[in-house]
Design a protein around this nucleic acid. Structure first.
Ligand SMILES: [Mn+2]
Ligand SMILES: [Mn+2]
Length: 507
DNA sequence: TCATTCTTCG
DNA sequence: TTCACACTTTCGC
DNA sequence: GAAAGTGTGTCTCGAAGAATGAGT
């Protein structure tokens, strides 16, 4: 690493200030597309930044790219910048960087060493949020994409599109983020509720995030044992799972009649499969508590179960992998793919639909999915494109599309395609063994509710290429039980004639 | 002192 | 930083 | 059996330098 004693060494890098160039590109993007969203401080920052000497600007960007806010001068040696204290002078002048008091420096063995503190981290984080639309990505995306480490689909996008449309939305997102961080470390429900922003009328995905956070606050309240307050929060909360929590809390509060009444309403008009599944589990219990005769028990599940005993000596780190090996046969190999296979097939077949240049869906060049992926209108906005993809399943057309996209899009980030799981051979086996009716059924289920149906698929897939046959296998070790989303997929498979079984592994 | 983990860079 | 999954514990019948 | 709670890996690469910390 280039450290202080080396900063005078020759610059070998072809673009020694690449990170500064990238940061400037981002600032230009922000000024052009989001100028109306930025406040005075942010505008002033951008204006002043461009007036800085190059070395000072570069040092600031280096600091922004690093972790924490405190830096020893001796650790800020960059060959392209040169002397850090020279470069820091202009930054200190602006108040963006501060020299830490010497008392702090006493800790360090070298008293001549200076400590700098970056003062504008919150401002930089806000700019990062406005650019990316999330806090997950950072400026290193630029260089990683340049180097081809991350590849992203090139989607033509309207220069008017951006992550946020109003300043209020930016501030709300930030407030939600802070509140959710607070939830991690604090149990003060009153305080958390005060931090929670009010409902967002004009932004669906922000309102979704708000509701989910409200739900999590209620869960926290429930854990603390304040059932009455939790009930009140759940009742106010529009989050998908909140109705069921209301039933559960009424039950725990021994208000059985009310619980039964709401449960009956949910049974009549379930919002989704999850509600149906959970309310069916609560129903007999509530009836019993109400003194009613429990209705007939649930019909038995339709999937088969078999046992497998692994030798005690080979007790590997990964149970699924070991099971795959044990079940594998020369003519019938087993692969540990979990959600990776079906989702990848879906993502490859529907690539054009997923990355269709719909207005507002793509705004920067580092997206692995459209911004509205989880919006209820996602499918509707691309109905024609998806219909075209699904139509290919009526003939053999889908095979070429999947294989072609596997070749042409290799490595390009997509929310659906697990490049580390699939291979050409796996794809060939899958296309040979999975009938198109099964693919159509699974893809339809994923598209119907991406958030809840893109996961929960069985651990293993076994192919019999010679017989053009396959089966899915969910592995369960001792003490591991089927989860709700796994049960829903198993039931779905049974209903559509997709061969699936559960393998109970022991030693 | 060595091994492990964290951080940085591109 | 988020989420899906496994693994563990507790409860009530 | 059902429910709730906890833990873990992984979103994101690999190479290489620094820091950490347990053990001597
Ligand atoms: Mn699994
Ligand atoms: Mn499993």
């Amino acid at each position: 690493m280039r450290r202080a004693e080396h900063y005078a060494s020759p610059m070998l890098h072809p673009r020694p200030f690449y990170y500064l160039e990238n940061f400037c590109m981002a600032l230009a993007w922000l000024r052009q597309r989001c100028g109306d969203l930025l406040n005075e401080t942010e505008h002033a920052f951008i204006a002043r930044f461009h007036e800085l000497p190059r070395e000072s600007a570069a040092l600031l960007v280096r600091m922004i790219g690093r972790k924490g806010d405190l830096f020893r001068a001796s650790k800020l040696g960059y060959s392209e910048i040169g002397c850090p204290s020279d470069a820091a002078a202009a930054l200190i002048e602006l108040g963006w960087v501060d020299r830490e008091p010497p008392a702090q420096a006493d800790w360090w063995p070298d008293p001549s060493d200076v400590i700098y503190r970056l003062m504008i981290r919150p401002l930089c984080d806000r700019l990062r949020l406005v650019f990316f639309g999330n806090f997950r990505q950072d400026w290193s995306q630029f260089v990683l994409a340049d180097l081809g480490i991350f590849k992203y689909e090139k989607v033509p996008c309207d220069p008017a599109t951006r992550a946020f449309h109003t300043r209020e939305h930016i501030d709300t997102f930030h407030a939600l983020f802070l509140c959710s961080q607070q939830l991690e470390e604090s149990d003060d429900i009153e305080g958390l509720l005060r931090m929670l922003p009010p409902p967002v009328a004009d932004n669906e995905w922000l309102e979704d995030r708000r509701r989910k956070l409200q739900f999590r606050i209620a869960q926290c309240c429930e854990r603390q044992g304040d059932l009455v307050l939790a009930l009140q929060i759940y009742r106010e909360c529009g989050y998908a799972g909140a109705r069921l929590r209301v039933v559960r809390l009424l039950e725990r509060l021994e208000r059985i009649a009310e619980a039964l009444q709401l449960a009956a309403r949910i049974r009549e008009q379930p919002a989704d499969e999850v509600e149906t599944q959970q309310v069916c589990r609560m129903w007999p219990r509530l009836q019993r508590k109400a003194g009613l005769i429990p209705q007939r028990s649930r019909p038995p599940h339709g999937w088969s179960t078999f046992k497998l005993v692994l030798p005690l000596d080979q007790r590997p780190a990964c149970l699924e992998q070991a099971t795959a090996q044990a079940l594998s046969q020369a003519e019938a190999p087993v692969h540990y793919v979990e959600n990776g296979l079906i989702n990848s097939l879906f993502g490859l077949l529907c690539w054009e639909a997923i990355f269709a240049p719909i207005a507002g869906a793509f705004f920067h060049e580092f997206q692995a999915a459209p911004a509205d992926l989880h919006a209820p209108a996602f499918h509707g906005r691309r109905a024609a494109q998806f219909a075209q993809c699904f139509a290919q399943l009526e003939s053999d057309g889908y095979r070429d599309t999947i294989r072609r996209n596997f070749e042409q899009k290799t490595g390009i980030q997509s929310r659906f395609v697990f490049w580390n799981v699939i291979s050409e051979a796996l794809l060939r086996s899958a296309l040979d063994c999975l009938p198109r009716e099964h693919l159509a059924a699974c893809f339809g289920r994923i598209l119907a509710n991406i958030r809840s149906n893109a996961c929960g698929l069985p651990d293993l897939v076994q192919f019999w290429p010679a017989q053009r046959r396959y089966r899915l296998i969910e592995v369960k070790g001792p003490g591991d039980r089927l989860q709700d989303n796994q049960i829903r997929w198993l039931s779905f498979c049974v209903a559509h004639g997709i061969p699936v079984s559960v393998c109970q592994v022991s030693w």
